[in-house]
Design a binder for these strands. Structure first.
Length: 570
RNA sequence: CGGGGCGUGGCGCAGCUUGGAAGCGCGCCUGCUUUGGGAGCAGGAGGUCGCCGGUUCAAGUCCGGCCGCCCCGACCA
């Protein structure tokens, strides 16, 4: 590609709204342009990168035996009602109506569509296993897009869905996708870690996320510093201290705590540390109420509570409900003396506490020296607390958990029969029984990967694309376009590299060397060839690897081989 | 949705406190000079100061409302 004929629009300064490296450099390099909050256009350079990333994914999907399809963006409401997700999917999908008032959503994910699709096509056990995938635009009505391509309202995702006749088949399909993902991230030079994850609105089990550790990510993972435990903060567990024998007798005392409602206020007033207090959180779960207890210095993990109550609708009790359950204003709830039909569940850590502080279920009062058994009973012990940096690992019991910010790049789930049952994706087994197929679901954020690549591979002056993602394999800078001799050399090199199958960006523009160097750094092709002074003086060209600045001089005969060699190691 | 910040030529910003002729750098156009790290000189084009309303002789500047963008939080596949 001749730079003089190409669409290169770099910016000397990044627009003020861009803060993180990938957003800034992709804007400055002329890869993307903003259209609205969380909405971007892809310029020619950006589209090249996107397509290179897609190609890697496509190749690995195909090797893994998946088949590419393309499903619609527009999903009829009826389809989503059949799965029961029209009203519950969060964040709410973007919804539209046509002129006949029919309702649709812009697909945020494609379980419904793909399941309906195969319901018509897969009839016999002979037809499965089958795995279909697509690379498609997804729409999600994000509350707050952020970080350029990290979180958008509209983005590109590769999603795959497997259909099997039994659990063993699902395991094989799942493992094939998992392994393909590992290869994809290896090829893209993204050192991901896989972690335990929540299934969220999709549902399912054995769900793992592929995370790139990055300060600019919006997720947190905990990794053990001595074993291989790794989990999304949403579901991480840590080891609770050993339970201690409860005291036999009550020593409970009522103390006056006017207007002290928060843990901070109560501990301040009573002169104790937060880990001496038990926090009581009241929830409405289905038709009943739950009191969830955690130590005062801990946060309750609502995912864990939700998992505990299974399908029941869960929300925090409102002020009126708290008042009627405890007889007190919000801020004075405690486990002692709650109505008998309130289920008391407590985090394991509470079992290691003695003589603690709780709300007294009356205005402006707390109890001190409260004890398990003597003062109240716990219906169930559950892991309810948020894990924290520095907690002891639950898996190995020796290491400690380390928190890391990260970017979620992919997510794999075993779905089971949730969608196939709801949407009648059934098949006949060898005995003639009609059975729902067992599904798996596997997503990769393609456009997010582009941002992640830049986050992982950039320097002060610009991007440093890994070989497989780069918009061009190499760039040639002709520093003196008016010099006929140098021009002939550069032209020749350009042709030779193209003959080797490389995509080359040939900068033969009438621009100053400074501009060419600066833009080449910014755009970040893996290998840069300079034809200039050294070529005139010594008959050699300079070949530089963008990733580490390694540079060599090569004669005109050796140049092509050197470019190929340096590219190979990028 | 809560908290914070910002909106002035294509981009980055100053001007607003204390109302009185819209500025700077980069980019863009023309000419000449230049060619190893975003060139130099000269000339030039380009702005309803986010929008609506109000106060005032006079509003980029003060007041009210709205819109948009960014960050933190909540939420998240």
């Amino acid at each position: 590609m001749l730079a003089s004929q190409y669409y290169i629009r770099t910016l000397r300064e990044a627009p003020a709204e861009a803060e993180i490296a990938s957003h800034r450099l992709l804007l400055r390099g002329g890869y993307i342009r903003p259209v609205g909050a969380g909405i971007f256009s892809w310029l020619p350079l950006g589209l090249r990168v996107l397509q290179r990333v897609e190609q890697v994914i496509r190749e690995e999907m195909n090797v893994a035996g998946a088949h590419e399809v393309l499903m619609p963006v527009l999903h009829p409401r009826e389809l989503w009602e059949r799965s029961g997700r029209w009203d519950i999917f969060a964040p709410t999908p973007l919804r539209v109506k046509d002129r006949a008032d029919r309702e649709f959503c812009l697909g945020p994910t494609h379980e419904e569509v793909v399941t309906d699709l195969v319901a018509m096509d897969l009839d016999s056990y002979r037809d499965i296993p089958a795995t279909l995938y697509q690379i498609q635009v997804k729409f999600r009505d994000e509350l707050r897009p952020r970080g350029g391509l990290i979180r958008c309202k509209e983005f590109i995702m590769k999603d795959a869905y497997s259909f099997d006749r039994d659990r063993d088949g699902l395991d094989r399909s799942y493992n094939a996708m998992y392994d393909a993902y590992v290869r994809i991230f290896e090829r893209l030079n993204l050192p991901v870690v896989t972690v335990e994850a929540e299934a969220g609105s999709i549902g399912g089990t054995d769900t793992r996320e592929f995370m790139l550790l990055s300060e600019n990510g919006e997720d947190t993972v905990y990794m053990c510093d001595s074993c291989d435990y790794a989990s999304n903060a949403e579901c991480a567990t840590s080891r609770a201290p050993d339970a201690i024998e409860p005291l036999a007798e009550s020593r409970r005392e009522l103390v006056s705590t006017p207007d002290t409602r928060t843990v901070e206020q109560v501990t301040g007033l009573l002169g104790v540390t937060p880990d001496r207090l038990v926090k009581t959180l009241l929830f409405r779960a289905g038709d009943g109420f739950i009191a969830a207890l955690v130590r005062g210095d801990r946060a309750l993990n609502e995912f864990k509570l939700a998992r505990f109550v299974k399908g029941e609708e869960l929300r925090m009790a409102n002020d009126a409900e708290v008042q009627s359950l405890t007889g007190a204003r919000v801020g004075f709830a405690g486990p002692v003396g709650l109505p008998a039909d309130v289920r008391i569940i407590a985090d394991h850590e509470v079992r290691a506490m003695r003589d603690f502080v709780t709300g007294a279920n009356q205005d402006d009062a707390h109890f001190v020296n409260v004890n398990l058994a003597a003062d109240f009973g716990v219906d169930e012990w559950v892991d309810l607390r948020e894990a924290c940096h520095g907690d002891t690992c639950a898996q190995c019991a020796t290491g400690t958990l380390q928190a890391h910010r990260c970017i979620e790049l992919a997510h794999v789930f075993k779905l089971g029969t949730k969608y196939s049952s709801a949407l009648d994706a059934t098949f006949r087994d060898a005995e003639g029984n009609e059975l729902p197929s067992i599904m798996g679901c596997y997503g990769i954020g393609v456009s997010r990967i582009v941002a992640a690549l830049v986050e992982q591979h950039h320097g002060k002056s610009g991007i440093m694309w890994p070989r497989e993602a780069a918009p061009f394999d190499a760039t040639i800078l002709l520093l003196s376009p008016d010099d006929e001799e140098l021009r002939a050399i550069a032209d020749n090199l350009y042709t030779q590299l193209q003959d080797c199958g490389l995509d080359v960006l040939y900068d033969e523009r009438d621009a100053s060397p400074g501009v060419k160097f600066a833009e080449a750094d910014l755009i970040g092709c893996p290998v840069r060839v300079v034809v200039g002074r050294t070529t005139r003086n010594e008959g050699k060209v300079e070949i530089r690897r963008r990733a580490d600045g390694h540079e060599e001089l090569a004669s005109l005969d050796e140049a092509v081989a050197a470019v190929l060699r340096l590219r190979e190691s990028s």
